[in-house]
Design a protein around this nucleic acid. Structure first.
Length: 275
DNA sequence: CCCGGAACCTGAAGGC
DNA sequence: TGCCTTCAGGTTCCGG
């Protein structure tokens, strides 16, 4: 499941391959992948110089001349590959570049999207702060969380509160910060928010260094797998002992999302056990 | 505004 | 063995 570290890893891998090149064809194998107008998606990006590959939250954007862009969202099972996978291929689109590079948008579940952006900044403006940016301070996180009474786990998944955090890294960050996932976001004082801020930055930075977590279909463009999941403390580890205290890790549903946590290290605080 | 829940999608896993 | 149901989760939309 590509989250911020996975998308950032893909961005870093692709940028040197496409910088200053241009798209010469956008082939829609499965037209349903298109978000917005299909005609524009196939014609808009053609011939425009690629000025960079950007990431904002979980969005990957090929920045094009004139403030325009080609946006990719991999959702659950999408990947951008330099070679078409021979087995189990579910190629939904092929991006052909002026230097001969082909990018195969592979996606079993068909939830991923491809969109031509007239204004890249408009997309970016709809998202919350980047957790690894200088702008993202403890005070900003505290301010964002204080506006919501929803469970902190749900708040971390809200892309308008913090951009780029998904289910795995939310669980990992809450574990490091020793915060129960059901704790109402606005109940968190500056002290636990400081712990959460540090945990988010550490978890995301470490995962990027490990080239992302290959727990599902995630792979780098060259087919390589990331190793961040080997460093997970709680995510997808129900029934295993907590690496900190040995207590059996548990899984609970928070807003329909599976949430892994240590009941001893992350005890409920106050009235947050309701479900 | 705030929040919960359904829908989208398909392969894997579990129940009977 | 096989059919059926549920689950996984990022995002968007709808309803209370």
């Amino acid at each position: 499941m590509p989250e911020l570290p996975e998308v950032e890893t893909i961005r870093r891998a692709l940028e040197p391959l496409v910088l200053d090149e241009s798209f010469i064809a956008i082939r829609l194998v499965d037209p349903a992948i298109s978000r917005g107008d299909r005609e524009r998606l196939q014609t808009g990006p053609i011939g425009r110089r690629i000025t960079g590959v950007l990431r904002r939250g979980k969005h990957l954007v090929f920045a094009l001349e004139g403030g325009k862009g080609l946006a990719v969202h991999l959702r659950m099972t999408g990947s951008l590959l330099l070679r078409e996978p021979d087995a189990g291929s579910r190629v939904r689109a092929v991006l052909v570049l002026s230097n001969g590079v082909h990018l195969y948008f592979n996606d079993v579940r068909r939830l991923g999207t491809l969109e031509f952006l007239d204004d890249v900044e408009a997309l970016f403006g709809r998202l919350g702060p980047e957790p690894l940016s200088d702008e993202f301070t403890v005070d900003l996180l505290h301010a964002q969380l204080s506006r919501h009474r929803i469970p902190v786990k749900a708040a971390l998944l809200d892309q308008q509160i913090v951009a780029g955090v998904g289910n795995m890294y939310a669980d990992e960050a809450l574990f490091l910060a020793r915060i129960h996932p059901m704790t109402p976001a606005r109940n968190l004082d500056i002290s636990p928010v400081t712990s959460l801020w540090k945990a988010l930055r550490q978890v995301l930075t470490d995962a990027i260094a490990s080239k992302g977590a290959s727990v599902s279909t995630y792979a780098l463009p060259n087919g390589e797998h990331g190793t961040a999941h080997f460093g997970f403390n709680v995510a997808h580890k129900k029934g295993e002992p907590c690496p900190s205290c040995g207590t059996t890790l548990q899984r609970m549903m928070v807003r329909k999302r599976g949430s892994y946590y240590c009941p001893a290290c992350q005890p409920p605080s106050g009235d947050n056990t309701g479900g």
